[in-house]
Structure formats: C-alpha cells, structure tokens
Amino acid sequence: MTKQEALFNYCLRLADTSLILAQRNAEWCGHGPFLEEDLALTNLSLDLIGQANSIYQYAAQVEGKARNEDDLAYHRSEREFLNTLIAEQSNGDYAKTILRQFFCDTFDFYFYAELVKSKDETLSAIAEKSIKEITYHLRHTSSWVERLGDGTEESHTRMQDALNEIWRFTGEMFEMNEVDTILIKEGIAVDLNSIKSKWESKSKEILDRATIKIPANAFMQRGSREAKHTEHLGFILAEMQSLPRALPDAKW
C-alpha cells in the first residue's frame, strides 16, 4: 500500500464515520423528545456533515481521480464504507442515541486534539476547526448520559440497556491496521493506543456518575476496517443515497 492509498483510506474512515453518525442523528429531526433536543441533535449533525464534507474534499484531492465529495458520499456502496460500526447502530430510544453519540464524542475529542499535531497540514487544519465543535458536543452528551443514568428508575434502566447493547461496538474504534502503520511513520496519523486510556477513563468517569455499569461480557465486535458492516449500513445508504443515485446529474 502506498502512502497516498493509505491517506485516502484514512480520510474515508474519518469522513464516513462523521457522515453516517450525522445521518443517524438526523433521523431524529422533527421527532426529538422536546424542541431543544431536536435542535441540539440536528445542529450536532450539521457539524458532523460539515466535518465529513471537508475531509471528503481532501480525500478526493488525494485520490486524484476527478471524483468530488458528493461522489464519495453518494456513489460508493456498503462494502466501500469505512465508518465505525458504532456510528451505524440504530437510534433506539433517546438513551441509546445519546450514549452512542457520547462514546463517539469522547473518541473524537481526544482523537482530533491529537490530529491537530499531524504533519499533514490539511488534516491538522480540519482538526483545529472540528475540535471546537466537538468540545460542545461532548459537554452536551456527557451531561445527558449523567442525567438519564442517574435519573428516574425508568431512565436509568433504559440507559443501562443502551450500554449493554452498544458497549461491544466500542472496541474497534481503536483498531489499527497497515493504514495506521504507514501514516504514523509519516507523522500524519494518530496512534490510537495513545488515546485509548484517556477514552476509557473519561467514559468510566461519566458512566460512574450516571450510575450505570459496563457489561461483564468483554466480547467486542469488529469489522469496519475491512468495510464489513452490521446489517444496518445498507439500509442507511439506501435511504441517504436514493436521490443522488436516481438523479445523478441533478444540480441544486
């Protein structure tokens, strides 16, 4: 694998994760538990789409095959997407949506803080921009995880159920492969081992405050680094890509 191929793959991993997570959160638009949360989740989605957009633009430039950001988002299929499995999990109830977002925010918070130091100027600049938004996201979701977990009996049970369901998708966020090896050597990528303990201690701190417990079963599902996904992604793409695929030359 060349450095260029590795960088293209790395950009897709980041952009796909932001885009799919944004698409999931956007499903709440008009269905939020109350107006302020409806606005919060859609605003959060918008930030994620913006981040995805700038990374796709860069990916297209790195690839150099005259594809643009829309081609990458709308004209690739399931086995080409490199988003993490946690990003594509179904929304469930609000507890599950918030917890999924909290785990991703915590990851992003430490990840993008490191990516700012990347020798790749474009990724560093995008990270510098994104980290400001992610800081807001994390503040929001961590306060909701705590409030719901340490809330009523009902909200506590739902938050614990959510944790039991999605914990097994958190492990592969830190998985590294040849792409990482090549890019870490170049000073471009973030060594995910270096942020794992920070992610764990932040998660533990908030889950403790939320009075919910990490499941004893330590099994972790993996696959996204090889573009192997859970059953959800195909359905997300079918909906998200239907318009551009039906009208590929449409101009807005």
């Binding site: 302020e36 949360e37 606005l39 919060a40 605003n43 959060l44 918008l46 930030d47 938004e133 807001y136 503040r139 929001h140």
Partner: peptide, 13 residues
Amino acid sequence: MISQFGSTACKAL
C-alpha cells in the same frame, strides 16, 4: 441558559 444549541449552529438559547 435553556439550551446550548439554538436556531443556528453558532447560537445558544
């Protein structure tokens, strides 16, 4: 403060 997120990305309510 009512919400950290307002009518547009740049505003809180």
